[in-house]
Design a binder for these strands. Structure first.
Lengths: 191, 191
DNA sequence: CCATTCATTGAATCTGTATTCAATATATCA
DNA sequence: TGATATATTGAATACAGATTCAATGAATGG
Protein backbone atom coordinates (compact mmCIF):
# COMPACT_ATOMS: atom_id res chain seq x y z
CA UNK A 1 0.00 0.00 0.00
CA UNK A 2 1.44 3.33 -1.00
CA UNK A 3 1.61 6.17 1.47
CA UNK A 4 -1.04 8.08 -0.37
CA UNK A 5 -3.37 5.13 -0.23
CA UNK A 6 -2.69 4.65 3.43
CA UNK A 7 -3.41 8.27 4.10
CA UNK A 8 -6.67 8.20 2.22
CA UNK A 9 -7.67 5.03 3.97
CA UNK A 10 -7.06 6.53 7.39
CA UNK A 11 -8.91 9.69 6.51
CA UNK A 12 -11.86 7.74 5.25
CA UNK A 13 -11.77 5.54 8.30
CA UNK A 14 -11.80 8.60 10.54
CA UNK A 15 -14.52 10.33 8.59
CA UNK A 16 -16.81 7.34 8.58
CA UNK A 17 -16.47 6.82 12.29
CA UNK A 18 -16.91 10.52 13.02
CA UNK A 19 -20.00 10.57 10.83
CA UNK A 20 -21.46 7.69 12.74
CA UNK A 21 -20.76 9.20 16.12
CA UNK A 22 -21.77 12.73 15.22
CA UNK A 23 -25.20 11.67 14.01
CA UNK A 24 -25.89 9.26 16.82
CA UNK A 25 -24.53 11.19 19.81
CA UNK A 26 -24.36 14.69 18.43
CA UNK A 27 -21.37 16.84 17.60
CA UNK A 28 -20.71 18.36 21.01
CA UNK A 29 -21.34 15.11 22.82
CA UNK A 30 -18.81 13.29 20.69
CA UNK A 31 -15.30 13.61 22.09
CA UNK A 32 -12.35 13.50 19.77
CA UNK A 33 -11.12 10.77 22.05
CA UNK A 34 -14.32 8.81 21.41
CA UNK A 35 -13.55 8.76 17.73
CA UNK A 36 -9.91 7.84 18.28
CA UNK A 37 -10.68 5.15 20.81
CA UNK A 38 -13.32 3.47 18.74
CA UNK A 39 -10.83 3.30 15.89
CA UNK A 40 -8.02 2.10 18.11
CA UNK A 41 -5.78 5.01 17.24
CA UNK A 42 -4.31 7.80 19.32
CA UNK A 43 -5.88 11.22 19.59
CA UNK A 44 -2.69 12.71 18.26
CA UNK A 45 -3.01 10.77 15.04
CA UNK A 46 -6.46 12.14 14.46
CA UNK A 47 -5.02 15.61 14.72
CA UNK A 48 -2.32 14.63 12.28
CA UNK A 49 -5.02 14.24 9.68
CA UNK A 50 -7.48 16.89 10.74
CA UNK A 51 -6.63 20.31 12.05
CA UNK A 52 -9.48 20.28 14.52
CA UNK A 53 -12.70 18.58 15.45
CA UNK A 54 -14.52 21.34 13.66
CA UNK A 55 -12.43 20.86 10.52
CA UNK A 56 -13.32 17.20 10.57
CA UNK A 57 -16.96 18.09 10.80
CA UNK A 58 -16.58 20.57 8.02
CA UNK A 59 -14.98 18.08 5.71
CA UNK A 60 -17.92 15.78 6.33
CA UNK A 61 -20.34 18.51 5.39
CA UNK A 62 -18.30 19.25 2.30
CA UNK A 63 -18.45 15.62 1.35
CA UNK A 64 -22.19 15.70 1.79
CA UNK A 65 -22.38 18.79 -0.31
CA UNK A 66 -20.58 17.14 -3.18
CA UNK A 67 -22.79 14.11 -2.98
CA UNK A 68 -25.78 16.42 -3.20
CA UNK A 69 -24.48 18.29 -6.19
CA UNK A 70 -23.45 15.20 -8.06
CA UNK A 71 -26.15 15.25 -10.66
CA UNK A 72 -27.21 11.63 -10.52
CA UNK A 73 -30.66 13.01 -10.64
CA UNK A 74 -33.33 10.53 -9.90
CA UNK A 75 -35.41 9.81 -12.94
CA UNK A 76 -39.11 9.97 -12.24
CA UNK A 77 -42.25 9.97 -14.31
CA UNK A 78 -44.86 11.18 -11.87
CA UNK A 79 -44.08 13.77 -9.20
CA UNK A 80 -44.98 11.41 -6.38
CA UNK A 81 -42.52 8.99 -7.86
CA UNK A 82 -39.73 11.34 -7.07
CA UNK A 83 -40.51 11.21 -3.38
CA UNK A 84 -41.16 7.51 -3.34
CA UNK A 85 -37.90 6.75 -5.06
CA UNK A 86 -35.87 9.10 -2.91
CA UNK A 87 -37.24 7.69 0.32
CA UNK A 88 -36.90 4.13 -0.87
CA UNK A 89 -33.31 4.93 -1.69
CA UNK A 90 -32.58 6.46 1.68
CA UNK A 91 -34.37 3.83 3.73
CA UNK A 92 -32.90 1.10 1.60
CA UNK A 93 -29.40 2.39 2.29
CA UNK A 94 -29.86 2.10 6.04
CA UNK A 95 -28.30 -1.35 6.27
CA UNK A 96 -25.90 -1.70 3.39
CA UNK A 97 -24.65 1.86 3.09
CA UNK A 98 -25.20 3.36 6.50
CA UNK A 99 -23.02 6.32 5.60
CA UNK A 100 -25.51 7.40 2.93
CA UNK A 101 -28.23 7.34 5.49
CA UNK A 102 -26.08 9.02 8.12
CA UNK A 103 -24.88 11.67 5.74
CA UNK A 104 -28.39 12.72 4.96
CA UNK A 105 -29.04 13.19 8.66
CA UNK A 106 -25.75 14.99 9.16
CA UNK A 107 -26.54 17.52 6.48
CA UNK A 108 -29.82 18.36 8.14
CA UNK A 109 -28.26 18.62 11.57
CA UNK A 110 -25.54 20.86 10.23
CA UNK A 111 -28.17 23.47 9.40
CA UNK A 112 -29.16 23.95 13.00
CA UNK A 113 -28.24 26.74 15.40
CA UNK A 114 -25.27 25.86 17.56
CA UNK A 115 -23.26 24.72 14.54
CA UNK A 116 -20.28 26.97 13.76
CA UNK A 117 -21.56 29.53 11.34
CA UNK A 118 -19.25 28.87 8.44
CA UNK A 119 -20.26 25.23 8.36
CA UNK A 120 -23.91 26.00 8.91
CA UNK A 121 -23.91 28.27 5.90
CA UNK A 122 -22.42 25.53 3.79
CA UNK A 123 -25.17 23.14 4.80
CA UNK A 124 -27.81 25.78 4.28
CA UNK A 125 -26.67 26.25 0.70
CA UNK A 126 -28.54 23.09 -0.23
CA UNK A 127 -32.15 24.04 -0.71
CA UNK A 128 -33.87 20.72 -0.55
CA UNK A 129 -37.17 22.20 0.55
CA UNK A 130 -37.27 24.63 -2.35
CA UNK A 131 -36.30 21.99 -4.88
CA UNK A 132 -38.96 19.60 -3.72
CA UNK A 133 -41.52 22.37 -3.59
CA UNK A 134 -41.22 22.72 -7.35
CA UNK A 135 -41.99 19.08 -7.88
CA UNK A 136 -44.88 19.37 -5.48
CA UNK A 137 -46.33 22.19 -7.53
CA UNK A 138 -46.24 19.99 -10.61
CA UNK A 139 -47.97 17.27 -8.67
CA UNK A 140 -50.65 19.65 -7.54
CA UNK A 141 -51.33 20.71 -11.11
CA UNK A 142 -51.70 17.09 -12.05
CA UNK A 143 -53.99 16.53 -9.12
CA UNK A 144 -51.85 13.83 -7.53
CA UNK A 145 -50.58 15.90 -4.61
CA UNK A 146 -52.86 17.49 -2.05
CA UNK A 147 -53.43 21.23 -2.20
CA UNK A 148 -51.71 23.64 0.15
CA UNK A 149 -48.64 25.83 0.15
CA UNK A 150 -45.97 23.85 -1.69
CA UNK A 151 -43.14 25.01 0.54
CA UNK A 152 -45.05 24.08 3.68
CA UNK A 153 -45.83 20.69 2.27
CA UNK A 154 -42.24 20.21 1.28
CA UNK A 155 -41.04 21.27 4.69
CA UNK A 156 -43.49 19.02 6.49
CA UNK A 157 -42.49 16.09 4.35
CA UNK A 158 -38.75 16.46 4.81
CA UNK A 159 -38.98 17.25 8.50
CA UNK A 160 -40.95 14.06 8.94
CA UNK A 161 -38.35 12.10 7.10
CA UNK A 162 -35.65 13.74 9.16
CA UNK A 163 -37.41 12.88 12.40
CA UNK A 164 -37.84 9.29 11.34
CA UNK A 165 -34.26 8.91 10.20
CA UNK A 166 -32.81 10.41 13.35
CA UNK A 167 -34.84 8.06 15.45
CA UNK A 168 -33.72 5.14 13.39
CA UNK A 169 -30.10 5.93 14.09
CA UNK A 170 -30.86 5.75 17.80
CA UNK A 171 -33.14 2.72 17.78
CA UNK A 172 -32.37 0.71 14.68
CA UNK A 173 -34.39 -2.17 16.12
CA UNK A 174 -37.61 -0.33 15.33
CA UNK A 175 -38.12 -0.98 11.62
CA UNK A 176 -38.32 1.97 9.28
CA UNK A 177 -41.84 2.76 8.12
CA UNK A 178 -43.24 1.85 4.74
CA UNK A 179 -42.55 4.54 2.21
CA UNK A 180 -46.27 4.94 1.43
CA UNK A 181 -46.97 5.92 5.01
CA UNK A 182 -44.78 8.94 4.61
CA UNK A 183 -45.66 9.93 1.10
CA UNK A 184 -49.26 9.95 2.31
CA UNK A 185 -48.38 13.38 3.70
CA UNK A 186 -48.28 14.60 0.12
CA UNK A 187 -50.68 12.34 -1.70
CA UNK A 188 -53.98 13.68 -2.90
CA UNK A 189 -57.02 11.83 -1.66
CA UNK A 190 -60.71 12.23 -2.47
CA UNK A 191 -62.62 14.33 0.00
CA UNK B 1 -43.96 40.49 46.76
CA UNK B 2 -42.96 37.97 49.39
CA UNK B 3 -39.64 36.33 49.24
CA UNK B 4 -41.18 33.02 48.39
CA UNK B 5 -43.01 34.53 45.47
CA UNK B 6 -39.89 36.23 44.28
CA UNK B 7 -38.00 32.99 44.45
CA UNK B 8 -40.62 31.09 42.50
CA UNK B 9 -40.78 33.84 39.94
CA UNK B 10 -37.03 33.72 39.39
CA UNK B 11 -37.02 29.97 39.15
CA UNK B 12 -39.81 30.01 36.64
CA UNK B 13 -38.10 32.74 34.69
CA UNK B 14 -34.91 30.72 34.57
CA UNK B 15 -36.66 27.50 33.65
CA UNK B 16 -38.61 29.07 30.83
CA UNK B 17 -35.56 30.66 29.32
CA UNK B 18 -33.51 27.50 29.73
CA UNK B 19 -36.29 25.51 28.10
CA UNK B 20 -36.32 27.85 25.16
CA UNK B 21 -32.57 27.78 24.71
CA UNK B 22 -32.16 24.06 25.28
CA UNK B 23 -34.68 23.17 22.59
CA UNK B 24 -33.47 25.68 20.05
CA UNK B 25 -29.70 25.41 20.46
CA UNK B 26 -29.37 22.10 22.24
CA UNK B 27 -28.27 21.31 25.77
CA UNK B 28 -24.52 21.21 25.26
CA UNK B 29 -24.51 24.20 22.98
CA UNK B 30 -26.33 26.33 25.52
CA UNK B 31 -23.94 27.95 27.95
CA UNK B 32 -25.09 28.72 31.46
CA UNK B 33 -23.90 32.22 30.69
CA UNK B 34 -26.25 32.32 27.68
CA UNK B 35 -29.19 31.74 29.95
CA UNK B 36 -28.02 34.26 32.51
CA UNK B 37 -27.23 36.90 29.94
CA UNK B 38 -30.50 36.64 28.13
CA UNK B 39 -32.26 37.11 31.45
CA UNK B 40 -30.00 39.95 32.48
CA UNK B 41 -28.84 38.22 35.64
CA UNK B 42 -25.45 37.01 36.77
CA UNK B 43 -24.28 33.48 36.34
CA UNK B 44 -23.81 33.26 40.08
CA UNK B 45 -27.48 33.91 40.65
CA UNK B 46 -28.45 31.07 38.41
CA UNK B 47 -26.33 28.79 40.52
CA UNK B 48 -28.00 30.17 43.60
CA UNK B 49 -31.23 28.61 42.35
CA UNK B 50 -29.93 25.54 40.57
CA UNK B 51 -27.14 23.34 41.74
CA UNK B 52 -25.88 22.77 38.20
CA UNK B 53 -26.77 23.07 34.57
CA UNK B 54 -27.68 19.42 34.64
CA UNK B 55 -29.95 19.91 37.64
CA UNK B 56 -31.72 22.67 35.79
CA UNK B 57 -32.22 20.38 32.86
CA UNK B 58 -33.44 17.65 35.14
CA UNK B 59 -36.00 19.87 36.77
CA UNK B 60 -37.32 20.72 33.33
CA UNK B 61 -37.68 17.07 32.48
CA UNK B 62 -39.41 16.46 35.79
CA UNK B 63 -41.81 19.25 35.04
CA UNK B 64 -42.50 17.67 31.66
CA UNK B 65 -43.05 14.35 33.33
CA UNK B 66 -45.67 15.76 35.65
CA UNK B 67 -47.46 17.43 32.80
CA UNK B 68 -47.52 14.10 31.01
CA UNK B 69 -48.89 12.21 33.97
CA UNK B 70 -51.53 14.80 34.79
CA UNK B 71 -54.51 12.81 33.61
CA UNK B 72 -56.26 15.50 31.61
CA UNK B 73 -56.82 12.79 29.13
CA UNK B 74 -58.02 13.96 25.81
CA UNK B 75 -61.56 12.83 25.18
CA UNK B 76 -61.98 11.31 21.75
CA UNK B 77 -64.66 9.35 19.97
CA UNK B 78 -62.83 7.90 17.03
CA UNK B 79 -59.20 6.74 17.26
CA UNK B 80 -58.07 9.18 14.59
CA UNK B 81 -59.66 11.90 16.64
CA UNK B 82 -57.14 11.31 19.37
CA UNK B 83 -54.28 12.11 17.04
CA UNK B 84 -56.01 15.03 15.42
CA UNK B 85 -56.84 16.63 18.74
CA UNK B 86 -53.41 16.06 20.20
CA UNK B 87 -51.65 17.60 17.23
CA UNK B 88 -54.10 20.47 17.01
CA UNK B 89 -53.41 21.11 20.66
CA UNK B 90 -49.66 21.05 20.25
CA UNK B 91 -49.55 23.09 17.08
CA UNK B 92 -52.09 25.50 18.47
CA UNK B 93 -49.92 26.10 21.52
CA UNK B 94 -46.98 27.19 19.39
CA UNK B 95 -47.77 30.90 19.61
CA UNK B 96 -49.66 31.44 22.84
CA UNK B 97 -48.02 28.85 25.04
CA UNK B 98 -44.64 28.26 23.51
CA UNK B 99 -43.49 26.42 26.61
CA UNK B 100 -46.05 23.68 25.99
CA UNK B 101 -44.69 23.26 22.52
CA UNK B 102 -41.09 23.48 23.67
CA UNK B 103 -41.65 21.07 26.51
CA UNK B 104 -42.91 18.41 24.16
CA UNK B 105 -39.75 18.75 22.13
CA UNK B 106 -37.56 18.77 25.22
CA UNK B 107 -39.01 15.51 26.44
CA UNK B 108 -38.20 13.83 23.16
CA UNK B 109 -34.71 15.23 23.07
CA UNK B 110 -34.10 14.10 26.61
CA UNK B 111 -34.46 10.50 25.47
CA UNK B 112 -31.49 10.66 23.19
CA UNK B 113 -27.97 9.37 23.70
CA UNK B 114 -25.62 11.98 25.08
CA UNK B 115 -28.10 12.98 27.78
CA UNK B 116 -26.93 12.13 31.31
CA UNK B 117 -28.29 8.71 32.03
CA UNK B 118 -30.37 9.49 35.08
CA UNK B 119 -32.27 12.15 33.18
CA UNK B 120 -32.55 10.06 30.09
CA UNK B 121 -34.17 7.27 32.04
CA UNK B 122 -36.70 9.70 33.45
CA UNK B 123 -37.66 10.81 29.97
CA UNK B 124 -37.76 7.26 28.70
CA UNK B 125 -40.29 6.37 31.37
CA UNK B 126 -42.99 8.01 29.26
CA UNK B 127 -44.06 5.48 26.66
CA UNK B 128 -45.83 7.63 24.16
CA UNK B 129 -45.23 5.23 21.31
CA UNK B 130 -46.71 2.30 23.18
CA UNK B 131 -49.71 4.27 24.35
CA UNK B 132 -50.52 5.50 20.88
CA UNK B 133 -49.98 2.06 19.45
CA UNK B 134 -52.97 0.83 21.44
CA UNK B 135 -55.19 3.48 19.97
CA UNK B 136 -53.86 2.65 16.55
CA UNK B 137 -54.85 -0.98 17.02
CA UNK B 138 -58.39 0.08 17.80
CA UNK B 139 -58.42 2.23 14.70
CA UNK B 140 -57.21 -0.66 12.61
CA UNK B 141 -60.02 -2.87 13.88
CA UNK B 142 -62.48 -0.17 12.95
CA UNK B 143 -60.88 0.17 9.55
CA UNK B 144 -60.03 3.84 9.92
CA UNK B 145 -56.27 3.42 10.31
CA UNK B 146 -54.09 1.78 7.71
CA UNK B 147 -52.79 -1.70 8.35
CA UNK B 148 -49.26 -2.36 9.47
CA UNK B 149 -47.40 -2.92 12.71
CA UNK B 150 -49.03 -0.59 15.22
CA UNK B 151 -45.79 0.26 16.98
CA UNK B 152 -44.07 1.12 13.73
CA UNK B 153 -46.97 3.30 12.71
CA UNK B 154 -46.97 4.98 16.08
CA UNK B 155 -43.23 5.53 15.92
CA UNK B 156 -43.39 6.92 12.40
CA UNK B 157 -46.16 9.28 13.36
CA UNK B 158 -44.51 10.69 16.45
CA UNK B 159 -41.09 10.94 14.87
CA UNK B 160 -42.66 12.95 12.09
CA UNK B 161 -44.31 15.24 14.55
CA UNK B 162 -41.05 15.57 16.42
CA UNK B 163 -39.18 16.45 13.26
CA UNK B 164 -41.74 19.06 12.33
CA UNK B 165 -41.82 20.61 15.77
CA UNK B 166 -38.05 20.82 16.05
CA UNK B 167 -37.86 22.55 12.73
CA UNK B 168 -40.56 24.97 13.75
CA UNK B 169 -38.53 26.04 16.75
CA UNK B 170 -35.68 26.93 14.44
CA UNK B 171 -37.67 28.53 11.62
CA UNK B 172 -40.96 29.73 13.08
CA UNK B 173 -41.55 31.71 9.91
CA UNK B 174 -42.38 28.53 8.03
CA UNK B 175 -45.99 27.83 9.05
CA UNK B 176 -46.78 24.55 10.75
CA UNK B 177 -48.47 22.04 8.47
CA UNK B 178 -52.16 21.27 8.51
CA UNK B 179 -52.97 18.54 10.96
CA UNK B 180 -54.55 16.38 8.25
CA UNK B 181 -51.30 16.26 6.36
CA UNK B 182 -49.69 14.48 9.27
CA UNK B 183 -52.52 12.26 10.32
CA UNK B 184 -52.53 11.05 6.73
CA UNK B 185 -49.62 8.89 7.85
CA UNK B 186 -52.12 6.86 9.84
CA UNK B 187 -55.35 7.25 7.95
CA UNK B 188 -56.80 4.35 6.05
CA UNK B 189 -57.43 4.99 2.38
CA UNK B 190 -59.03 2.84 -0.30
CA UNK B 191 -56.60 0.94 -2.43
C1' DC C 1 -34.19 50.25 64.28
C1' DC C 2 -31.06 46.32 64.70
C1' DA C 3 -30.19 41.54 63.37
C1' DT C 4 -30.76 38.04 60.37
C1' DT C 5 -31.62 36.05 56.24
C1' DC C 6 -31.95 35.91 51.37
C1' DA C 7 -30.74 37.91 46.63
C1' DT C 8 -27.20 39.20 43.81
C1' DT C 9 -22.73 40.03 41.88
C1' DG C 10 -18.06 39.42 39.84
C1' DA C 11 -14.09 37.57 40.23
C1' DA C 12 -11.54 33.32 41.26
C1' DT C 13 -11.15 28.28 40.60
C1' DC C 14 -11.88 23.79 38.70
C1' DT C 15 -12.58 20.51 35.06
C1' DG C 16 -13.17 18.20 30.96
C1' DT C 17 -11.68 18.26 26.36
C1' DA C 18 -9.47 20.02 22.45
C1' DT C 19 -5.05 20.91 20.79
C1' DT C 20 0.12 20.91 20.57
C1' DC C 21 4.51 18.83 20.54
C1' DA C 22 8.69 16.38 21.06
C1' DA C 23 10.01 11.77 20.57
C1' DT C 24 9.84 7.19 18.19
C1' DA C 25 8.78 3.88 14.71
C1' DT C 26 8.17 2.77 10.02
C1' DA C 27 8.22 3.31 5.31
C1' DT C 28 10.18 5.26 0.91
C1' DC C 29 13.66 6.21 -2.19
C1' DA C 30 18.26 7.52 -4.10
C1' DT D 1 22.26 1.18 3.08
C1' DG D 2 21.66 5.77 4.68
C1' DA D 3 18.80 9.81 4.48
C1' DT D 4 14.49 11.71 4.44
C1' DA D 5 9.73 11.84 4.97
C1' DT D 6 5.57 10.21 7.01
C1' DA D 7 2.85 7.71 10.61
C1' DT D 8 2.05 7.24 15.30
C1' DT D 9 2.18 7.89 20.19
C1' DG D 10 1.63 9.76 24.92
C1' DA D 11 2.30 13.20 27.64
C1' DA D 12 2.09 18.31 28.20
C1' DT D 13 -0.60 22.54 27.44
C1' DA D 14 -4.40 25.63 26.45
C1' DC D 15 -8.97 26.95 26.90
C1' DA D 16 -13.80 27.30 27.21
C1' DG D 17 -17.22 26.91 30.15
C1' DA D 18 -19.16 25.16 34.65
C1' DT D 19 -18.88 25.88 39.39
C1' DT D 20 -17.53 28.13 43.87
C1' DC D 21 -17.16 31.83 46.98
C1' DA D 22 -16.43 35.90 49.57
C1' DA D 23 -18.41 40.29 49.55
C1' DT D 24 -22.42 43.56 49.09
C1' DG D 25 -27.12 45.05 48.95
C1' DA D 26 -31.80 44.71 50.16
C1' DA D 27 -35.69 42.89 52.50
C1' DT D 28 -38.01 40.84 56.59
C1' DG D 29 -39.18 40.15 61.32
C1' DG D 30 -38.94 41.01 66.08
Amino acid sequence: MTRKEQKEMRQQQIMLKALELFVTKGFSETKVSDIAESLGISVGLLFHYYESKEALYKSLVEMGLEATKRPEKIGFDAPLDYFTKTIDGLFGAAKEQPWVFQMFVLMSQARRPGIPDEIRQLALSVDQIGFSAEIIKQGQEQGVIRSGDARSLSSAFWCSVQGIMEQHLITPEIPLPETEWITAILKYTEV
